[in-house]
């Protein structure tokens, strides 16, 4: 019977309602579980949404077509990241010299380590293109992967794992090396762990959070500027 109802609802509004409902339910479940750091709320929400789609017999392609209307907002939302970036501008002015060196190097390394490991283990080019922007915040990373010819769903899975791994690694190294400088921890979280790392940084304190969102946005912009060009060069050479 549920199938018959869904067949009648041939409108993007269904996909939009399902997305919003699953998001709110996922957030509620996340709080109910005590906000675990290893499990980003968006993963819970996506699991709920996937279960709902399977139960209702909706194909992912159909859902995605309707959800396109929602994803249109990603465009202006990406532009909106200029606001937190500008709010951190005084940090950029004060520390432009170390940032100028560290950010490009860290950004390139974050992509290169993953690409080299995956390439050495025989991953095909399409998979490499999906993993390349793994440390970049999702709205920017989606644009990059589409330009490189990768798969957005694989990228999203990679982003989730990277975010959780980066958060775990920063706390591990922070304790081992006795790093207490909030700026350092924040930058490491934002550069390597995008939005998931930034959320964790805000739990450490406002300074860590500010530096994480700074690192996240600059990493995103730098990768978006450099990676498609590097990719074009690499494919011309290869």
């Amino acid at each position: 019977m549920s199938l018959a109802v869904v067949d009648h609802l041939d409108t993007p509004m269904l996909a939009i309602a399902l997305s919003i409902g699953a998001y709110l339910a996922g957030m509620a479940l996340f709080r109910r579980l005590g906000s675990p750091g290893w499990c980003p709320p968006v993963l819970l929400a996506s699991l709920l949404l996937a279960a709902a789609l399977k139960a209702a017999g909706i194909a992912y392609v159909d859902y995605r077509q309707g959800a396109q209307w929602l994803m249109l907002l990603l465009g202006p939302a990406t532009v909106a990241l200029a606001v937190p970036l500008y709010q951190q501008m005084h940090h950029i002015r004060a520390l432009w010299r170390p940032l100028l060196v560290c950010l490009p190097v860290s950004t390139v390394l974050a992509a290169c380590y993953a690409l080299l490991i995956a390439w050495a283990l025989g991953a095909p080019p399409e998979l490499l293109a999906s993993l390349a922007p793994k440390s970049v915040t999702a709205p920017i990373a989606m644009g990059i992967t589409e330009r490189l010819g990768g798969s957005v769903p694989i990228l999203m899975g990679g982003l989730l794992i990277t975010g959780v791994a980066a958060t775990a690694c920063v706390s591990l190294f922070g304790r081992l090396l006795k790093i207490t400088d909030q700026r350092l921890l924040g930058l490491a979280l934002g550069i390597n762990g995008h939005a998931i790392g930034t959320v964790r940084a805000f739990e450490l304190g406002p300074t860590a959070g500010a530096f994480a969102s700074l690192g996240m946005t600059l990493t995103g912009v730098l990768t978006a500027l450099m990676m498609p060009l590097a990719w074009r060069l690499a494919s011309m050479l290869g």
Binding site: V42, R64, A67, P76, P84, A138
Partner: peptide, 21 residues
């Protein structure tokens, strides 16, 4: 306008995340 949009980012990327499965 930026603040509510940025808060919605996690929901806006969900249609992509779900595709993982």
């Amino acid at each position: 306008a930026a603040q509510p949009l940025i808060m919605l980012l996690a929901m806006l990327i969900m249609p992509g995340v779900v595709g993982v499965f």
